[in-house]
Nucleic acid binder design. Sequence first.
DNA 1: TGTACATCAGTGAACGCGCGTTCACTGATGTAC
DNA 2: TGTACATCAGTGAACGCGCGTTCACTGATGTAC
Lengths: 219, 219
Amino acid sequence: MLDEIKTVARQHLATDGANLSLRAVARDMGMVSSAIYRYFPSRDDLLTALIIEAYNALGDAVEAAAAGPDRLDLRARWHAACRAARDWALTHPAEYALLYGSPVPGYAAPDDTVSPAQRPPLTLVGLLREGLETGLLSPPPADELSTPLHDDLTELADVFFTGIPPALLARGMAGWTQLFGLISFELFGRLNQTVAHRDEYFDHQVGLLADLIGLPQPR
Amino acid sequence: MLDEIKTVARQHLATDGANLSLRAVARDMGMVSSAIYRYFPSRDDLLTALIIEAYNALGDAVEAAAAGPDRLDLRARWHAACRAARDWALTHPAEYALLYGSPVPGYAAPDDTVSPAQRPPLTLVGLLREGLETGLLSPPPADELSTPLHDDLTELADVFFTGIPPALLARGMAGWTQLFGLISFELFGRLNQTVAHRDEYFDHQVGLLADLIGLPQPR
DNA sequence: TGTACATCAGTGAACGCGCGTTCACTGATGTAC
DNA sequence: TGTACATCAGTGAACGCGCGTTCACTGATGTAC
């Protein structure tokens, strides 16, 4: 039952965006709207459940993709992870918008969403860590950061990204930001009438960021 | 009157997001809701007017900033333009979300919004053009693009970005995408509890993209 | 094997609220003769 | 200078719709004796 509600709710996200209506979901299930309350205490709880599931689905896809290629081919793994994120977003546009679009007015994501939300960026930065450990990736010069930023990113690395030098972390975050920007632009229609070959465009842009990060070219 | 309605409507965007309510706007103006119809034929037309104004405000800010520094200091101009976009977004978060957040369900932006929307990216790519003309910027190797992408971007350049080689255009678009991603992440709360020194972080990330594009370091 | 009872998924009506849009109207202002 | 008329900004009631949430309830299922 819980699953059926969530499935129908997901379909509604696709048409109504984040303005998810409990009544519409109930209607589609052939139930009366109050029946939903047996399963979810409120509309926001249903939304939260959908968000957590979506983050995890995206996280699963990205993690699996990053584990696919040869472990030492960081660039292939980077591309695979990014493509997986994009593929998931293109097949689940409404859920992507729910996660990364404008915040839903009046809805504050509870703490349970934090850790699933970290999975994709953790995966990407994980590649950088492996690069350092295997010596395939050399960190950028340590002095390219201003002191306050150096301190911020050192602290951030200590908490979530152990062992990543701050200047490299900044580049990893640049990659994650770019990935998000590329997907959002494509999904929200900024590429319409501009670029026809979306796959090639995406791969190229992801490759540029891999260069910036310093991922080694395949031999 | 038109201006007053738009001003009040802008304030409402800030709290309700894109679910702009005509009735709420009228209420705040001490009018009856039907009175709005003397000025705007429908809610969507009001939304469109707000969108166009917002694009133009952002465009003004970005263009003015890019014209500020020494004409030949492309990097300073790039930074200034990006900072102007971010500043505008931070001071007008709701309008930024309206422009670049998830699409409003049921609303399709009419054609009048297209050309104001192009102003910021046109400004950024304009810097690249000036770099080419003055010889300060050398285009990336032409063969780094696959054929279909090369063709797409050549065509795009012919229409909107005359004289920009496709591989450079791709990098310019990377910069524009990154700018959008950086601002969105900051505005939508992804940097909360992560990076305290937002200005430095932004400048650093913008600088990294300037490197990628090949903007010359200041002497 | 048969009755009494508890569980619990789902019902249906209601509350109080919001919305966009239409439509006949009032009443002040300004113009024309 | 004074009256008649047109303009037009804003009114107020209504239509028909949607929403989240509460609450007393029905009625089928399963369990206990």
